[in-house]
Amino acid sequence: MSALIRVSNLSKTFAGGFTALDHIDLDIERGEILALLGPNGAGKTTLISIICGIINPTTGTVTVDGYDIIADYRKTRALIGLVPQELATETFENVLATVTFSRGLFGKTPNPEHVEKVLTDLSLWGKRHARIKELSGGMKRRVMIAKALSHEPRILFLDEPTAGVDVELRKDMWQLVRILRESGVTIILTTHYIEEAEAIADRIGIINHGRIILVEHKAELMRKLGKKELVLDLRHSLAAIPTALAAYNIELSADGRQITYTFDSNQDRAAITHFLDNLTAAGVQFKDLKTEQSSLEDIFVSLVNEAE
């Protein structure tokens, strides 16, 4: 089956001359959760905004379910729900009215049961008659999610969904994302928090300076780029790293009782053996050891550095 969203050769140069997206190609599969990972200013919001119709592209095309986002915007936009990065809500409206408004705006006939369900899922039903301006920031964000889900979208964009939200909302949000995914909704979220991508996504796309650096399944990404750390608890504390080990990428803890050796498990499968041999030869004894897969954060940093 072909990709649900197909971004081809997409570029965006803003009126001021700044190029925020530089020839982006990206396929998003049906039913997946894709995390777009990149530092601030990478172009994540711009990319999403173009797919949703908020910003005009400079060149390139995007199709959603086979329809062009410009020529067939009615079809593509009806499929998409968007929760933008910035908190933006009506002020004087009440919760129920604003969510009902969103459903109508997206061309759906009224369905109070669905609206009730969405509000209930987001713990907003009790607040349905409250004016939005009276709600807390976290509650307002829930309202924005409810608006995006009001028209039963098949695709959900969450732009930095957990930036500055409380723990409870974060938990609720991930729960919701899982339920939505089970019902077949494709979810694209952006983040510059690595843990978020690691925790929830099927695939991760890394974007920096307006370019997609790579898109991989999470596990594949870990395997391909996985750095490992070997941590050794020493029997006797060291004042400095022995010169015989200077060639290795190691760090000595402040108290001199722990050594951390970072290596690339893909490039050198025998790395541990060699290192331990040399360690023994240098007369360093250890009482315990453990290896750790480095977090996606490290992968990300190394990727971004590599691309520069």
């Binding site: 119709g53 908020i54 079809k75 933006a88 009506e90 705006l105 997206f106």
Partner: peptide, 11 residues
């Protein structure tokens, strides 16, 4: 207020 995003992204 920024709520125009919804109008622009609607069909």
């Amino acid at each position: 207020t920024g709520t125009i995003y919804e109008l622009l992204s609607a069909p």
